[in-house]
């Protein structure tokens, strides 16, 4: 990435549904694969469950973000809606939280896109809208990276990236030993020099793992060695060392996996912000950004500090960035 880039991350806003569901209840509803004890042992507690569809969470979150930063809807040149679950990018009909269209007009249901609905609802009349998919948990980070590039290319003033996911009723909430929450998180990019600087984003895609069911055993074996290499590569490309990083801001996969990755990489667990895993669960693609906002709000990092954000998305994608607050 060009170190002289004027693009900055100006703000983050997130929405977590208030409804919290415990592990026992999830298990009783058949939404876990492992036992509640195992999930608790892995560091999980409650998960958040939305009562509105992803598109509603997304637009409310973007609206609040723009208002907070005094950005007029018409000033936004790019909106990227980066949802993980295919159902989250479609606007459901009727009362459904999420639906995969069926029936006579199913074909048209497949074109009820959330990104354009958000543009319409919020009056983002100058925003080109993009729906980003198939990136699993790196969706929002990839969206920020792409928005950064498009802003430079198109000379845009503002771009907004949003991720919102709501798990359809009845579907498992345990994904490869992680308890998933519904959430939305939006990131505002601008040219305001006061914002945070995305200094490096290293990504890696290993298409072999496209089938998380069929190749899960290999994936479990590759997860830590690959994570270690991605992290090391990011340090190398950024010219920074472990000591230069104030905090590693993770995605909320199991605390256990962070304990192990911490040992593989030599980054002490105390330097990894894992406090949100138990109360908030794994918000699929939003965790890194939710956690980044929280560590800033809690004063755990200050202006000028470097943080590293690491995430892994089924597919499989690894994404690791360094942001200067």
């Amino acid at each position: 990435m060009n170190p002289a880039s004027p693009i900055r991350i100006q703000g983050i806003h997130y929405t977590l549904p208030e409804k919290q569901v415990g592990l026992e209840q999830l298990s009783a509803e058949g939404r876990l694969l492992s036992t509640p004890e195992t999930m608790r042992d892995f560091g999980f507690g409650d998960c958040r469950v939305s009562s509105v569809p992803a598109t509603v969470l997304a637009s409310a979150t973007v609206k609040a973000l723009l208002e907070r930063h005094g950005v007029e809807p018409g000033e936004v040149g790019l909106l990227i809606n980066a949802s993980v679950l295919p159902t989250s990018s479609l606007v459901p009909r009727g009362e459904a939280l999420a639906e995969f269209p069926s029936g006579e007009s199913a074909h048209l249901g497949l074109f009820r896109f959330s990104s354009t609905r958000i543009q319409d609802e919020l009056g983002l009349i100058n925003a080109r809208t993009v729906g980003l998919s198939e990136l699993g948990c790196v969706s929002l980070s990839h969206a920020v990276w792409l928005a950064h590039a498009v802003m430079l290319m198109e000379d845009l003033k503002y771009a907004v990236c949003v991720n919102a996911d709501v798990f359809p009723d009845g579907i498992k909430r345990e994904v490869v030993y992680n308890v998933c929450s519904d959430s939305a998180c939006a990131v505002l990019l601008s040219r305001n020099p006061e914002g945070m600087h995305l200094k490096r984003y290293h990504t890696l895609t290993r298409g072999y793992y496209w089938d998380p069911d069929g190749h899960q055993n290999e994936l479990l074996a590759a997860y830590f060695p690959t994570g270690k290499r991605v992290l090391e590569k990011t340090f190398k490309e950024s010219g920074l060392a472990r000591e230069d990083i104030k905090l590693l801001v993770p995605h909320n996969v199991s605390l256990r996996s962070w304990e192990i990755l911490s040992r593989f990489t030599g980054i002490p667990l105390e330097k990894i912000y894992t406090e949100n895993i138990r109360p908030k669960g794994h918000s699929v693609a939003a965790d890194n950004w939710i956690n980044l906002k929280d560590v800033i709000d809690r004063g755990l990092v200050s202006k000028g500090d470097h943080v590293m954000m690491f995430s892994f998305g089924l597919g499989a994608h690894w994404g690791c960035s360094i942001v200067q607050v």
């Binding site: 290999e218 590759a222 830590f224 270690k228 192990i260 040992r263 593989f264």
Partner: peptide, 13 residues
């Protein structure tokens, strides 16, 4: 690079 050489880790890890 989908498969990587296993890492060597200490006993606790």
């Amino acid at each position: 690079g989908a498969f990587l050489p296993p890492d060597i880790v200490d006993e606790d890890t």
